[in-house]
Simulated assay, not measured.
Amino acid sequence: MTNPTLTKIKNVRERLRIKKPWDSIIIFALNILISIPLFLIIHQNIIDPEWPFHLDRILIFAVMVTVLQLILHRVRTVLILFIGLYLLVLAYGSLFGNYGFSTVFDNYQAMIYTMSEDPHPQDVILSKLLPFPNKGEILDAIDYNNPKVRNFAVGAATKYFKEFKSQDKERRMIQCFSVFKEIRNEWNYVNDPAGREYIAHASESLQHFSGDCDDHAILMAACIRAIGGTPRLIHTGGHLYPEMLIGTRVDLERANYLIKQKLFVNESKNQTINYHVDEHGQIWLNLDYTARYPGGPFMSEEILGALTLN
């Protein structure tokens, strides 16, 4: 005797069953849609062993796709409901949240680009524990609370790259890059008076956008600080230059992609992104006037000290 309940279940399963070869095509497409964000999460949360050609990431992705393909094949009768739910979640995230279709696509692009175009690390090694020269005078000169500095920084932050809409931390990073571009475009190198170290306040340098490396570093640091960024100054003995805090290696991936593919395409063409890693594992990009893009080449001088503006 046939059980009516079992018959109804079989009928529902038959209605949900997808005909060949569409079942295999949909399973594979769904596999990729799931694998991309899942791989992003794994990639961002495991230590990079730095295997050649990123073989570790390739292996992880291949294993993930294979396992998911087997799982999805066994539950293919509910694929329609699963796909609908997945698309609804991404659609909701696109309209009301922070993680939707565009975010998945952008993060995937950034990750793939960084895997193929590695930034170039350069460790900060403090060779001598020397006092930072003119520390008190320099800190006073970084007058980021001065209305002239704040107003200039706000204008420079929104002068370039306005077409790139982003959220919170990334928006601040892009605005700091815009400030870098504006100051670099305007800056003229002028020596200090003979036999004297003249340290100009940031608000003073705004008058003519001229001065030596100290004055440039002070102005850049003040403007970055004025819009919420974290700058620091690097002392080499014969040179002083500014850097800005990027954050973690995940943040570096995004910065690398934005600089080379979106914001400074011509300036950074066929170039590498150079950065320093501090004792806490935080990443800092060079913002010196000698660099044509954030993360440009460092001057080859021994680093003697760093002054961070928290």
Rank of each mutant, 00 (worst) to 15 (best):
K20D: 15
W22K: 02
W22E: 04
D23G: 02
I26P: 01
I27K: 03
N31R: 05
I32V: 14
I32A: 10
L33C: 11
I34F: 09
I34D: 05
S35I: 10
I36G: 10
I36K: 10
L38P: 02
L38M: 11
L40Q: 06
I41A: 13
I42Y: 06
H43V: 09
H43I: 05
H43K: 14
Q44N: 14
Q44C: 05
D48K: 10
E50D: 15
P52F: 01
P52V: 03
L55W: 07
L55T: 13
D56I: 12
L59W: 05
I60W: 05
F61K: 01
F61W: 05
A62P: 00
V63R: 03
V65N: 10
V67M: 08
V67T: 04
V67G: 02
V67R: 00
H73R: 12
V75K: 02
R76D: 09
L79V: 04
L81A: 13
F82P: 09
F82K: 11
I83Q: 07
Y86H: 13
L87F: 12
L87Y: 15
L87E: 09
A91Y: 13
G93P: 04
G93K: 06
G93H: 04
G93V: 00
F96T: 02
Y99S: 11
G100I: 11
S102W: 14
T103F: 03
V104K: 08
Y108R: 00
Y108N: 10
M111T: 15
M111R: 13
S116G: 07
P119Q: 06
P121Y: 00
Q122K: 11
V124W: 02
I125R: 05
I125G: 02
I125N: 02
L126E: 11
F132Y: 14
P133R: 08
P133G: 08
K135Y: 07
G136W: 02
E137G: 02
E137I: 03
E137L: 03
I138E: 03
I138V: 15
L139P: 00
D140S: 14
D140V: 10
A141V: 01
I142H: 06
D143W: 12
Y144R: 00
Y144M: 05
P147D: 01
P147N: 02
V149F: 06
N151E: 06
F152H: 07
F152L: 05
F152M: 08
